[in-house]
Amino acid sequence: MFQKPFRVKSKTVIRGSDRRKLRADVGKALPSLAEEQLQELVPTKEDMSTMKIYTHSGRNVTVYCLGNNPVFFEMDKNVFPTVYSLWRVPDMLPCLTTWTDVLKNLCGGADLMLPGVIPGEEGLPVIEKNSLCAVSLLGNRAPIAVGRTTMSSSQMQECGMKGKGVTVLHTYLDQLWEHGDQTPLPTMATQQSCPEGHVPDLDSGDATSEEQLQGQLAAEASSTTDTVPIENLVLNDDLGDEGDLEKVNDLDTEITVGGVKDDGNECGEEEGETRDEEDEVSPVDQMDSLLYQCFLHALKTNVKKTDLPLLTSKLLRGHMQPCCCPSSSRPCRPRG
């Protein structure tokens, strides 16, 4: 839920009545907490604030912060602890253990699948269906994720530990964790070890360090949010007799528009003209490059800022197709 950056709509200091209501809601959602633990998580005198955010998926979420760290978030009238709270009280929720290599999958937005769950010496903890659950790594009791179970622990064993076990809502290293002081994952002793003869069945190879994983997640988040203004898209309008179209945005394959007529409305090839470039690239690459060129032409010549956002079907039919001549494998010269 918080893998991509969210938008903060407001942030205010929490009132005394809201603080008491939060403490009551937390006590109701987490009945295992003792009174002193509730006081530690929702103190009476320490600075607390409430933050209204809008997630990338379109969810409205209320986040409660203790100092700089988000400690709880509320969604659909349900209160969930963050990893900062779980590190203060590790036994707050029943916890499932998974392999270290699974961490990067969970941080990437994946849910916890049952084949990746490691049963302890006493089996799985007692968990009911659709209840809050934490996830920790083998050899470290500090939780790295929180979510809701898709089935009870008895159902997990009955189905042979296959399928999805936990719908993950929040993880270590996600954007909600980054909004706090970004405390590294603490090391908490545990007596659980790898079961004898139990070998992880994972697609990934060597384990990725936390520093590398954090860098990968930051790069993916920035790549999904970076946008290029339309004004920065520059096409070569000075088309000569050969009609050459310059490379745009470091295209791997350069497309040459041959035989563009001076009227600017039709395009064709001169007799005897050969295209060595087409012999060097596959038809699939040619079509990909054609679609990309038509997309850039459409952004530069047809699409206005007031038209955005656009459905992909409308963009293709109404803006990209007019930039390509009928029965042609090359984009036409833009009108105007």
Rank of each mutant, 00 (worst) to 15 (best):
D18S: 15
D18V: 10
R20C: 01
K21D: 14
K21I: 15
L22T: 10
L22H: 08
L22K: 10
R23W: 12
A24C: 14
A24T: 15
A24H: 13
A24G: 12
D25G: 00
V26W: 07
V26H: 08
G27A: 11
G27C: 12
K28R: 01
L30Q: 01
L30W: 04
S32M: 06
S32R: 02
S32K: 07
S32E: 03
S32T: 00
L33S: 01
L33R: 05
L33F: 05
L33W: 01
A34L: 12
A34K: 08
A34M: 12
A34V: 05
E35K: 15
E36A: 13
E36H: 15
Q37D: 02
Q37M: 04
L38W: 04
L38Y: 01
Q39N: 02
Q39Y: 13
Q39L: 11
E40W: 04
E40N: 09
E40Y: 02
L41C: 09
V42H: 05
T44M: 13
T44S: 11
T44F: 13
K45G: 03
E46N: 03
E46S: 09
E46F: 02
E46C: 07
D47A: 03
D47T: 05
D47V: 00
D47H: 05
M48A: 08
M48T: 13
M48L: 07
S49W: 13
S49E: 03
S49T: 02
